[in-house]
Structures are given as C-alpha cells and as structure tokens.
Computed example of a mutant assay.
Amino acid sequence: MSSLLLHLRQSLKRPDHWLYASWLDIVLKYRRTRLGLLWMLVPTAVYIWGIGGFLAALQPGIAVAGFLAHVGIGFVVFRLISTVAMDATTAFAQSQAYIYDGHTRLTDFVLRAVARSFGYFLLSLPVALAAAFASPEFDAFGTGLAFLGLATVMWNLFVFSVLLAIAGARFPDLHEAMGSAVMALFLVTPVVWYASVAPPHTLHGQLMRANPLHHMIAVVRAPLLGEQVEPVTWVYLAAMTAAGTVAAVWVYRSAARRVPQWL
C-alpha cells in the first residue's frame, strides 16, 4: 500500500475522477429544481438576514451590519467544516463499488467529499461576502491573511477527513455520532455570538478555545473584519496541523489496506 502523500500527489495530477464526480454530485442534486444552483444562496441568505437579523434585534446597541458580517462568514465556514466532517465518515462506503473493483487510491474518494463541500462553500460565499462588504468593519487588506487561513483550514479538513473516512469504514455508527458532535460543537463556536463574551478565565471561554472549529473560523473571519487573531489560535492550528498530518500519514499506511474488508 502506497503512502498517503504519494496517493495525494497522484490524485492531484489526475483530478478527473474526484473533481468531476464532486461537480456532478452538486449539479445532480439541483438538476430538477427551478432555481438550480441558485438554491445554494437561499440558506445562507436566510441565515444571515433572517436568523442574524433576528438575533441582532434582541441585542440593543449592537452594530447590525458588523454582526451580520460576523454571522455570514462564520456560517459559511462552519458549514464547510461540518459538511466535510459528516461526508468524510461515509466517503468510502458511498464508493464501495469502485473500491471493490480495485480502485485502491483512496485519496480520490476523500478529495471527492472535500471538493463537494468546498463547491457548496464557493457557491454560497458571494452572499456572505455581500454581508461583509456592507460592514464598516470590512478590511480588504486582510484578504491575503484570510486566504492563508482558508488554505490551512482546507489542509486540516483533508487530513482529518482521511482519519474520519478510515474510521467510518471500520465503525459505521461514526456518521450518526458525528452528527451529534457537530450540533454540540455549534453551541461552543462563536458563529451567532462574539468570542469576546467568553473570556479565557471562564469555563465557557475555555471550552470555546478548546474547540478546533472556533480557531478554524477565526483565521478566516477575523482578518476580513479587521479583528486580531489571538496568538493561541495560531499555536493551536500549528499543533493541530502537525499532529493531524502525522496521524493521517501513519493511519493511512497501516489501515488503508483493510478498508475493502471493513466495507
């Protein structure tokens, strides 16, 4: 069995399988609807101006435009992360026929799940950016740092998707457990509230900072809205990236050959 990095390089050189398949997944989902891919904009718009607007009205004195931008960017990044995590647990099960047919480069199936969720993210991103542009806090100079943060997030999503996909092949119940975990993590992730209300010395502040989703959202959202990224976020992400990469390489080498037996 080849290494993870070798298979990843081969998949990136020949993206015809996973890239085309991920696009087909998106197109076929909305093929028979009137609005087609425009439906991807609806949930984001409803969340930002519906739920975000409602919550802003409950907090007198809050800057509504800034809060909507905070919610919008936080929502699309949170949905990207949670969708990848959910889809990764069934990535191999959904491609069982290909694997049984001898397609053992498993990175293709992981990349398909990641690319599909990233496609949803890109399609809904204009709505979130519209909310960000309308905010006086928007900082165009932070775009470069936000792209760097997004690249870090995507690499982490890939390596942890490898781990989740292999674990999901071995333990099918992981998909249901992940759904519950995502709901719990949403409560301690500052998507519809500001991280400043959870100081580090408080219990909810410690839970928030132990939550990887908070840090993954912060490195994308904070630079765009002119906010400072906490030093602990950079340390957390650096440690998570290193640990996740090592774990994914080791687990893929030792367990990927068993995936066909587990499916």
Score class of each variant (00 low, 15 high):
D108E: 05
F109G: 00
V110F: 07
L111P: 04
L111N: 03
L111A: 04
R112W: 01
A113C: 11
A113I: 04
V114L: 15
V114F: 05
R116H: 07
F118E: 03
F118C: 05
F118M: 07
F121I: 07
L122Q: 03
S124K: 09
L125Q: 02
P126F: 04
A128P: 07
A128S: 14
L129Q: 01
A132G: 03
F133G: 05
F133Y: 14
F133T: 04
S135M: 04
E137N: 02
A140S: 14
A140Y: 14
A140K: 06
F141S: 15
G142N: 03
G142S: 03
L145R: 01
L145C: 00
A146M: 05
A146C: 07
L148K: 12
L148A: 15
L148D: 02
G149D: 07
G149C: 10
T152L: 15
T152C: 15
V153A: 08
M154T: 08
N156K: 12
L157E: 09
V159R: 05
F160V: 11
F160D: 10
V162F: 14
L163K: 00
L163Q: 02
L164A: 15
L164F: 14
A165D: 01
I166T: 06
A167H: 10
A167C: 14
G168H: 05
G168F: 14
R170A: 13
R170S: 14
P172A: 04
P172W: 05
D173Y: 06
L174M: 13
H175S: 13
H175D: 07
M178C: 11
S180N: 10
S180V: 13
V182I: 15
M183H: 09
A184I: 13
A184Q: 00
F186P: 00
V188F: 10
V188D: 06
V191I: 10
V192C: 04
V192Y: 00
W193N: 05
W193C: 02
Y194Q: 03
Y194H: 07
A195M: 03
A195F: 01
S196T: 11
V197N: 09
A198V: 05
P199Y: 07
P200A: 08
H201S: 13
T202P: 01
L203D: 08
L203M: 12
L203R: 11
L207I: 07
L207C: 02
M208C: 07
M208A: 12
A210S: 15
A210H: 14
P212K: 13
L213W: 11
L213E: 04
H214D: 09
